[in-house]
C-alpha cells in the first residue's frame, strides 16, 4: 500500500511568495555576515565566498520551485489531506469529524500576490494542516466548503 499525492496544486504565484520570504532571510543572513566581516575579518578564501553566494542564491531561486512541486492538497467529504515541505516532506491527513477550526490568513506579501493561507486545526497541538499559497478566491471557497463539510459530519472533534 502506498500513499498517493494529493490531487490539487497550489497557485503558481506561491513561488514568488516563498522566494520573497527566502530573500528576506538571505538578506538578514548576508547583513549579519557583512557586520561580522566588518568587525573582525573572517579571512575566508575566495572560493568559500563563492560557495556561500551560490548556496544563498539557490535558496532563493531553487527552493521555492522545489516547494511548489511538493505543496499539494485535497479535500474529500470525509478528510483533508495536505503535503508540504521540500527537503523534509510532510503529509498530513485529518478526518473531517475531528476538525475544530478553519482559519484564513493573508500576509502583506500574500495580499500583493492575491494569495491566502488556509489552516485547519484539530484538538491536537501537533496536528494543524496548513495550505499556503492558495489563490485568495479559491481559499475563500475552500473555507466555506470545509466549514459546511465539517458541520455535516457528526462528532465532537475531540
Amino acid at each position: 500500500m502506498n500513499l498517493r499525492e494529493p490531487a490539487q496544486q497550489v497557485s503558481a504565484r506561491a513561488r514568488w511568495l516563498w522566494a520573497g520570504g527566502a530573500l528576506a532571510q538571505v538578506v538578514v543572513a548576508a547583513g549579519a555576515l557583512v557586520v561580522v566581516e566588518w568587525v573582525s575579518p573572517l579571512d575566508l578564501p575566495w572560493w568559500a565566498w563563492v560557495l556561500l553566494g551560490v548556496a544563498l542564491a539557490s535558496y532563493v531561486v531553487v527552493v521555492p520551485q522545489w516547494r511548489y512541486l511538493v505543496h499539494r492538497w485535497e479535500v474529500t467529504d470525509t478528510a483533508v489531506y495536505t503535503q508540504t515541505g521540500w527537503w523534509a516532506r510532510e503529509r498530513r491527513i485529518a478526518p473531517m469529524s475531528r476538525i475544530q477550526t478553519v482559519d484564513h490568513a493573508e500576509g502583506a506579501l500574500a495580499r500583493l500576490l492575491g494569495l491566502a493561507t488556509v489552516t485547519v486545526t484539530t484538538a491536537s497541538a501537533a496536528g494543524a494542516l496548513e495550505i499556503a499559497g492558495l489563490d485568495a478566491v479559491r481559499a475563500r471557497q475552500l473555507v466555506d466548503e470545509l466549514t459546511l463539510k465539517a458541520d455535516a459530519v457528526e462528532g465532537d472533534a475531540t
Binding site: 523534509a88 503529509r91 498530513r92 485529518a94 494542516l129
Partner: peptide, 12 residues
C-alpha cells in the same frame, strides 16, 4: 485525530 507522514530526502 490525525496522521502525519514525515520523511526527509534520505528517508524517502
Amino acid at each position: 485525530i490525525g496522521w502525519t507522514f514525515r520523511d526527509t530526502w534520505f528517508q524517502r
